[in-house]
Amino acid sequence: MPGWVFIITRSLLFLLLLFITTKILGKKQISELSFFEYVAGITIGSIAGEVVTGLEGNLYHGSLAIIVFGLVTYLVNFLSIHSKKFSDFTEGKGTVIIRDGKILEDNLKKERYTIDEISTLLRQKNIFNVADVEFAVLEPRGNLSALLKKENRPLTPKDVGMKMANEKEPQTIIMDGAIMDEALRWAGKGRDWLYTELEKLGVTLDNVFLGQVNSYGDLTVDLYDDKIQVPQPQQRPLLLASLKKTQADLELFSLATECEKSKAMYKKNAALLQETINKLEPYLNG
């Protein structure tokens, strides 16, 4: 048998073996979170490469080595789940580098990191001033996680006391002109609803490249034909506008009328409506 046939068969065989090994080890292997996965990732790859191209090498020895590496990693993962002590030992623990805004020089020395290296890691997180950091940990895989001081963190709606509507994840219900029935069910809708919504937008199903529905039940679509303008869902902002108008009307009536009883009635209802508007604004703002 000529050499190239060997290489082709071996390549295919080892590709399959590597695929199965990583499949069994799971997502953790791909992200190489712990020491064992890191080592297994490197070693398995080079063993496979060696055996595939080195024709004199023994096929079974190579496969055996890959299986052993895979098996040990799998076992370590399995034991780590069951014993915290074991996982601390094998996967390592993070080292605190900055606490209360102060660099812990002893820990830095223990991990043999220079101040330049720590600065680099911080800069990769867009932190240029060490004084901005409240707390930082060197993770077992060598990357740095940093918690900024409260005043340096990005502003969130919570910080300014804004009330936000909570939102569920949008569902992709049309892909490539085909209806995804499972996602449609997750969104709590049916095909009839979808056809009605598409008709409202004035598009046909086979022209839709991507269609998503948000937690309010608004359908947004992307069409194959990019020249067609699709109307954006306007229902909720429209409702908010009309509510505001009615509220203003009620205020106006309360000023205009001379009947004391009606004045009070209008005023009360205007206040009531304002309260409703305030409560609903986060949901209606689009």
Binding site: A165, E167, K168, S215, G217, M265, N269, L272, L280
Partner: peptide
């Protein structure tokens, strides 16, 4: 909207708003 949305808190809020608006209508 109350019927359309799958969001539980939004549903409740919409139902409440519908009730309040109805009471305003009844008042006016």
């Amino acid at each position: 909207f109350a019927l359309q949305t799958e969001n539980k808190s939004a549903k409740k809020l919409y139902q409440q708003a519908a009730k309040e608006t109805q009471s305003i209508i009844d008042n006016v």
